[in-house]
Design a protein around this nucleic acid. Structure first.
Length: 450
DNA sequence: TTTTGAGTTGTTCGA
DNA sequence: GTCGAACAACTCAAA
């Protein structure tokens, strides 16, 4: 009887701290077939940055294990076909809790079962899997703080080591398919080893000051773990275990950010429709503007508000944006341009190298006010105040907005005030913020008490 | 069972 | 310039 197992990698492109892989090794005494399926449904909306990063991370994983089988198509067909070719009796995965992923996995499990093959789910991409932390009445939390407290009390397992001497099965030449739509751009170094190197360096140099410096886009003060967490090149358990050994205010705050990640995955698990719809139904009555020329200017980084434009251009250039700036540009789209959050969220997902459906949709809804535990409606980010507070010398803006490199210091945040006028080629502000703030507040007022 | 108070990444206004 | 209050409404947990 065959003892071959199939390890279906998805968002867990690592060998260390990978319980599903340990299960596969335990079950596959005769061999473990490593498989990745480029899922057509996920490939198309991933956008050039995320596609390019994924391909290079897969190449890295393939190098490390000898040969990763990469297929493209419908997972229901590809996983079954690969399992049958290998004679595998079990297929091993880390559970996916997203609206599409969980449905897809159920379909794959059903197809496998018809052929006597079992889909074994072990672990998840989260420290605490969605649905595991609930209130005393059994219902899910809808507010972050109590969730985070319960999340901490619930706790998580310690990391597990990478398996040694895995009998990887080389089934066929695994050449990454030539793929259209992969943009040549400068992306973070991919792979598990690079992720752990970066993390280790951050632990020693950046973490202690994280609580303050994390809000400063002009500094390179964040860990940049988001892309590695997105693809599971590192598991949050690994980070949490290291955080516990590096006690500081920065460490505490960093752990809270990991709790936000689990919280949003939990919210999406309980409310799958919130990936696309307002979580608070009253927002369906909110008047929004259809995306028009102003939306295009926002996408292109030509709103005339330097901090907004710098952020949007960083996104286009690097597939990444500093989190503080994500909030500023999101607030600008929803509350200054009155465009529904879904349009901005879609643009983000098409560009971000670390784009995660749960964090993205609920980050946007937090800003827009329609989410679980969202910012109160009257919290409208002022793009100039935010810029002066968090990019005090204007370095971040000048890095991404070449039209303004000649403007020294914080004056760069108000180019319309420069004595020589707005530098050539840079747009005038497309809206009056104070005015649009009042418009936003009155629109929120309207849906509050109909 | 009911009450109370804390929470939540901001801005503006007026003293 | 600095500081506290006001800007709502609601969840959650402790009292």
């Amino acid at each position: 009887m065959s003892r071959t197992a199939l390890m279906w990698f998805r968002r867990d492109l690592r060998l260390a701290d990978n319980p599903a892989l340990l299960e596969a090794v335990r079950a596959g005494t005769d061999g473990v077939v490593p498989l990745f399926v480029l899922d057509d449904r996920l490939w198309a909306p991933a956008g050039p940055a995320r596609r390019a990063y994924l391909i290079s991370s897969l190449a890295d994983l393939s190098d490390r294990i000898g040969r990763l089988h990469v297929r493209r198509g419908d997972p229901v067909h590809e996983v079954l076909a690969a399992a049958q070719r290998a004679g595998a009796h079990t297929v091993h995965i880390a559970a996916d809790y997203g609206p599409y992923g969980s449905t897809r996995d159920t379909a794959v499990a059903t197809a496998l079962e018809r052929h006597g093959i079992q889909l074994v789910r072990t672990g998840s991409p989260y420290a605490v899997a969605p649905g595991r932390v609930v209130k005393s009445d059994g219902r899910p939390y809808s507010v972050y703080s109590p969730y985070a407290r319960a999340w901490r009390e619930h706790g998580w397992r310690p990391p597990v080591a990478a398996p040694e001497g895995v009998p990887w099965v080389e089934q066929e030449p695994a050449i990454l398919p030539a793929l259209p739509g992969v943009a040549p751009m400068t992306l973070p170094e991919p792979g598990e080893a690079a992720a752990l190197r970066r993390w280790s360096a951050y632990l020693n140099t950046g973490l202690a000051g994280y609580d303050e410096a994390r809000n400063r886009p002009d500094l390179d003060a964040t860990s940049r773990m988001s892309v590695h967490l997105k693809w599971g090149e590192v598991h949050p358990r690994t980070l949490l275990a290291d955080l516990a050994r590096h006690r500081s205010k920065g460490s505490e705050v960093y752990r809270r950010e990991l709790a936000w990640r689990d919280f949003y995955a939990d919210v999406l698990w309980h409310h799958p429709e919130s990936a696309r719809e307002h979580l608070r139904p009253e927002f369906s009555a909110m008047p929004f503007e259809p995306p028009g020329p102003a939306f295009d200017q926002w996408c292109a980084g030509r709103t005339g508000f330097p901090i907004v434009d710098a952020g949007m251009r960083q996104l286009l250039a690097e597939g990444w944006m500093h989190n503080r700036v994500r909030m500023i540009v999101a607030s600008f789209l929803v509350k200054d341009l009155h465009v529904e959050w879904q349009h901005g969220a879609r643009h983000f997902m098409a560009r971000l190298v670390d784009g995660d459906q749960a964090s993205n949709a609920h980050g946007w809804q937090w800003v827009g006010g329609s989410g679980t535990d969202a910012a109160p409606y009257f919290r409208v980010f002022n793009p100039v105040t935010q810029a002066e507070r968090f990019d005090p010398a204007g370095d971040y803006v000048r890095r991404y907005v070449p039209e303004l490199v000649g403007v020294a210091g914080a004056a760069v945040h108000r180019p319309w005030r420069l004595s020589g006028g707005i530098p050539g080629g840079y747009p005038a502000p497309i809206v009056n913020h104070a005015e649009q703030r009042r418009v936003a507040l009155s629109r929120y007022e309207a849906i509050r008490d109909p």
